[in-house]
């Protein structure tokens, strides 16, 4: 009984390991797949692993835990890809002698951040570039931005 319970509780973690291994393999060996698509493939394979390995035994519980762990893994990848704090930490790691604000800004600055983001927004069809100006193309990110503003007003002091 205890053995079965312990094995069952491990299933989401086994599925997460399958997810990570599959995602890394797909992205390493088929880089043209793209990072986001490899994450999606890895997540799907992990879902299938949980369904086949633990069919019938607390499927909803295991799936819920797996989805949450998969979300954490996605966030981990996303942080490495887009988080400014992680990029600053990486720049500091490369310079054990330390960096002043000016030296950090020579390596990583607002111009680079805006250029990188705006290209991504145009590429993904969120923003339209026409006659030297940017316009909103899809309302999706705008909706997310407005929701976050409301959340921030509720959470943080002004």
């Amino acid at each position: 009984m205890i053995y079965n319970q312990s094995l069952n509780i491990c299933l989401p973690f086994i599925a997460l390991a399958v997810n990570i291994l599959f995602q890394i393999s797909v992205f390493r060996f088929f880089p043209k797949t793209g990072l986001l698509r490899s994450v999606f493939f890895g997540f799907t394979v992990g879902c299938l692993a949980i369904i086949f390995l633990g069919f019938g035994t607390r499927l909803i519980f295991n799936l819920l835990v797996y989805v949450l762990l998969g979300y954490c893994y996605f966030h981990f990848i996303n942080m490495g890809q887009t988080a400014r704090r992680i990029r600053i930490l990486t720049e500091l790691k490369a310079c054990p002698g330390g960096l002043s604000v000016q030296e950090i800004l020579e390596r990583y600055n607002s111009a680079e951040i805006i250029e990188c983001r705006i290209s991504r927004l145009v590429e993904h069809g969120q923003v339209l570039f026409k006659n030297g100006k940017y316009y909103i193309k899809s309302p999706f990110l705008l909706l997310v931005a407005r929701t976050l503003i409301i959340l921030k007003q509720a959470l943080f002091p002004r």
Partner: peptide
């Protein structure tokens, strides 16, 4: 949520 996402801030400013 705490840190302003530059992509969302850009989208908001354009809007």
């Amino acid at each position: 949520i705490e840190a302003d996402s530059p992509s969302l801030a850009i989208t908001y400013n354009i809007a």
